[in-house]
Design a binder for these strands. Structure first.
Lengths: 141, 141
DNA sequence: TGTACTTTGCAACCCGGTTGCAGTTCTTGT
DNA sequence: ACAAGAACTGCAACCGGGTTGCAAAGTACA
């Protein structure tokens, strides 16, 4: 009873050592499709019959295996976006995100780079979370 | 840090057009004392008998009048810190924060300013939230 | 002092995130 | 192919931060 699977998606999961179940393939497909950071709720809404907890655990697994990164954009819910292919989620690899205060969308600003220097002595940097907020192009008209 | 005395605290509130009630004076005093970004829970814990909602509303009022700014440090709860004297919370005035993954403390990095350029066309910047995470000086030993 | 407005405290609610557990599906060794 | 064990899924329920409604207490001011 093999469900027809998109081989390329399956390959992505396998390359991250994630067991490619039907649910996970659907989640990965949806994340690729929207090309944006989405919350658990938004993800749930894009499926007809998906259990919230299963989606939650899928994302958790993805994050653990560095297939997605999570962003706290201040909307009240964590959002998730696909990592670049070779991403290991180190500080130098992190990029900024833009959160639209009107439509609540969150974009990855892959070209917005951050200064990683200027920390006080003996502070050790492990991660960063930069969110710019305002109006996106569609909402600023 | 220099902790202002009662009359000065009252003056601070008045200058921000906030009615100086007993509760608000206590909250402001505590915020000055700790000199750090604190969550609602932490604030509540530093008083013997204080209603959570009252503290919440005090902070909300403070924020509305730009006496405090709030930071989403990813700890799961919003944190609040006193603004500089003439702060109007515009993007150019915002500074970064450092969140310690070990002791959960959050510091204002008042000298760490952010580039406000590099946004895609027609994106309008209103606020920013930059949190560096890692180990603070006390925890990195 | 009386009246209108503001603040406070309590209870209760909402919602995102999370866990426990039982049933199902998948992997692995034979 | 099959059984045993591991991993995954779905449901219910819990947790904790944030928030609101409302009545009581406090405050401003004529």
């Amino acid at each position: 009873m093999n469900i027809p699977m998109k081989p390329e998606l399956e390959q992505i999961l396998l390359s991250r050592k994630i067991q490619p179940t039907a649910m996970r393939l659907l989640v990965l497909e949806e994340l690729s499709r929207v090309n944006m950071a989405v919350s658990l709720n938004e993800l749930e809404a894009s499926f007809d019959k998906a259990d919230r907890v299963t989606l939650y655990r899928s994302l958790k697994t993805f994050r653990k295996h560095k297939l997605v990164h999570s962003i706290e954009d201040g909307s009240g819910s964590l959002k998730y976006a696909l990592c670049e292919e070779d991403c290991e989620c180190k500080p130098e690899e992190l990029h900024a995100h833009f959160h639209c205060n009107k439509c609540n969308a969150t974009f990855c600003l892959k070209d917005y780079h951050l200064p990683v220097s200027g920390l006080p002595r003996r502070f050790v940097l492990e991660e960063m979370n930069l969110v710019l907020k305002g109006l996106c192009d569609a909402c600023s008209a």
